[in-house]
């Protein structure tokens, strides 16, 4: 639901970089979004396209790299990764002693620009 504010933050970050580097415009932006971040990629794309008009990213394409929820189990010692948004027990051994190692990402990673 807060994809609009996320899209706004992305635009602020890349616009700042665009000003700093003196680039003419931005053609694409890559972001990394974890499955457990509560962000829906489709909603983010929609929000981004809806608000990009008055920014240096007005022609930019947003590319979303989704990151699976992953963890490390202390019971069986193995690393795992799941399709869903959360982990209730280790999918390999059923153990409850695990730590989540990925899935909450929300980062801008890079952008392509015209100089």
């Amino acid at each position: 639901m807060h994809e609009v504010s996320i899209a706004q933050s992305i635009i602020e970050i890349v616009s700042g970089q665009c000003r700093k580097g003196g680039y003419r415009s931005i053609t694409s932006i890559r972001v990394r979004i974890g499955r457990a971040s509560g962000i829906m990629p489709d909603a983010l794309l929609f929000a981004f396209d809806a608000i990009k008009a008055d920014s240096p990213a007005r022609q930019a394409v947003l590319e979303i790299e989704e990151v699976c929820v992953s963890g490390r189990c202390r019971d069986c010692g193995r690393d795992f990764s799941v399709e869903g948004e959360y982990v209730l027990d280790c999918p390999l051994c059923g153990g409850l002693a695990f730590e989540i190692t990925a899935g909450r990402e929300m980062d801008v990673t890079d952008m392509e620009v015209e100089e």
Binding site: S9, G21, D110, E112
Partner: peptide
């Protein structure tokens, strides 16, 4: 990963890629 890492790479086809590793919610 906090803060911003910026690195500029000009690819062979002349396109310019800028690495901008930044947390989206960093400002907040």
């Amino acid at each position: 990963m906090t803060g911003t890492v910026v690195e500029k790479i000009t690819k062979e086809d002349g396109r310019v890629k800028v690495k901008v590793v930044t947390k989206i919610l960093e400002a907040n």
